[in-house]
Design a protein around this nucleic acid. Sequence first.
DNA 1: CTATACACTC
DNA 2: GAGTGTATAG
Lengths: 280, 280
Amino acid sequence: MLELRLVQGSLLKKVLEAVKDLVTDANFDCSATGFSLQAMDSSHVALVALLLRSEGFEHYRCDRNISMGMNLNNMSKMLKCAGNDDIITIKGDDGSDTVTFMFESPNQDKIADFEMKLMDIDSEHLGIPEAEYHAIVKMPSTEFARICKDLSTIGDTVVISVTKEGVKFSTRGDIGTANIVCRQNTSVDKPEEATVIEMKEPVSLTFALRYMNSFTKATPLSTTVVISLSPELPVVVEYKVAEMGYVRFYLAPKIEDDEVDEVVEQPSKKSKAQPKDEDD
Amino acid sequence: MLELRLVQGSLLKKVLEAVKDLVTDANFDCSATGFSLQAMDSSHVALVALLLRSEGFEHYRCDRNISMGMNLNNMSKMLKCAGNDDIITIKGDDGSDTVTFMFESPNQDKIADFEMKLMDIDSEHLGIPEAEYHAIVKMPSTEFARICKDLSTIGDTVVISVTKEGVKFSTRGDIGTANIVCRQNTSVDKPEEATVIEMKEPVSLTFALRYMNSFTKATPLSTTVVISLSPELPVVVEYKVAEMGYVRFYLAPKIEDDEVDEVVEQPSKKSKAQPKDEDD
DNA sequence: CTATACACTC
DNA sequence: GAGTGTATAG
C-alpha cells in the first residue's frame, strides 16, 4: 500500500514538465527514503535522476519498496488537470496495475481522482558513483537557461570553461562565434542571484546544446542551478526541489580533440558521477 | 425599420464568439420581445438559443417582426472591428437585403458603420417545450470550462452525475479514468463562486465532450453557468447575458446502455427542453 | 495564483 | 482557430 500526500502539488507538476521531454517511460521507485526515478533519455545519452524525500510529504506511507512503471507523457497529462495549489496524493496498491492521482482543491470543494495504467519497464538501475568535481558553479537558473537558448541559435555545442574568475560558455557556428562569461559574483541583493564558483582546478568541457536546453525545462523548479564539472566525467546539472530533493541531469562531454566536427553524441565513458553534496 | 442600440457592445461581441464555432449561418429574429436566434449546429446535434430582450437595449425599435439571415463568421469579423467599449447599433430596413452595424466610440470621436449582406436561410423554428428537470446545477463558469477541458485530455465523453452531495464529472480513455467531484458549496465569499445544486432526483447522463467544450466558449459571458439535467432529455447549458437574456446550449445525451462504444452522436430524442426559470 | 490580454506559431 | 508563452493586473 502506497499513499503519498504532497501539499505543494505544483512541485510534482513542475517535476514532470522538467523530465517528460527527455524521458518517455520510467519506473518510479518508492521506498521509505522517498519517491525517486532514474532513467536514460530515449536516445540513451543523458540521464535523469529525481529524488523527492519522504520528509517532504505531508503524509508518506510506503509499506514496502515498489517500482511503478509510468508513461511520463500520460502522467503529465493527468497532472495538468490538477490546479496549481491543489494537494496531490499518489496512491497505489501492491497487486494493482494502476496508480491513482488524487487532487484536492485548497478549500476541499473539488476532489478529483485520476487512475492511470502502469506499464512494465525493464530498467537497469544504474549506480551513480560519487565523484569529486574540479569545478562547481551555482548560478541563477533563468540565466543559465537564457544562455543555453541564446547559444543554440549560433551553434550546436557549448564549451563550458571554468576559471577562478568566472564561467565561460562558448559556441561556434556557421554565422559566427559567441562567448558569454559570467563572473563570480556573491555581492548581490538576493542570494539566489549570486554566481558562485567553487573550483579546485580549471576545467573546460564540450556538450551538446540540445540536451542542455532540455535540462533547462526544469528552470521553474528552482531559482538556482548547480553545474558540476570534471574532465571526462558527465556534467551534472542540478535543480533543487524545495525542501524535498532534486532533479539532476547527467550528460557526457563530447570528445573535443582534433576539432572533430559533429561527433555523434555518445556516452564517452561509462562512468557516471554524482555531485559531492548529497543534497541541499 | 429596425434600430437596436446596445450601449455595452462587448456583450454582442462575446455572444458571437460564443456561438460562431457551433453555428455558421443563422436567422436572427427581431420582434417587440427582443433579438433572438435559434439554430442547430452544423452537424445537427446541438442546438443554440440566444435571447437578448428589448429592455436590455438603450434604444429598441422594431416596427414589425423580421428575420435576418446572417453568416455568423462574417458578422463576427465585423463585430471584431468594434472596440470593447463601443456602443453598437444594429440597423435594418424592411426591404433591404443588408444589415448595418454601427460602432460609436465612447467619446463619440469615432463612428463606424459596417454593412453586411443578408442571406436566405430556411430554418425550421424548433419549438422548445418546457420541461421539469431532475437536477439543476449552478457553478462558476470557469470551473466548468476547466473541467471539460481537462477531461477531454483523457476521454471523449463525460458522464455527469448529480446527487445531493455534489456533481461528478467522469470520463474514461486509453490512458486511464478520471472523476471530478464538485461539492455543493454555498458558503463562499462571493455568490458567483458558489456551487448550488437543486435536485429532485439523482441523475446520470453521458455527453460528448467535444460539444461541451464548444459550449464553454460562452464562458466570458457570465461568471456562472447553469446546467439542467433530466433523463432522456437534452442537457441545457445556460450562460446569462447580463440584464438582457441568455445563451443556451442543448445537447442530447448519448445512449449509455450496454456499454455502446462510440455511438455516433445523434439527437436521440426529438424532444427539446427548456430550463424552468424563464430567465433572470 | 488567477485572469486577462497580446503576440506568436502551427 | 487553437494553443503557447509572456506580461501584467487584480
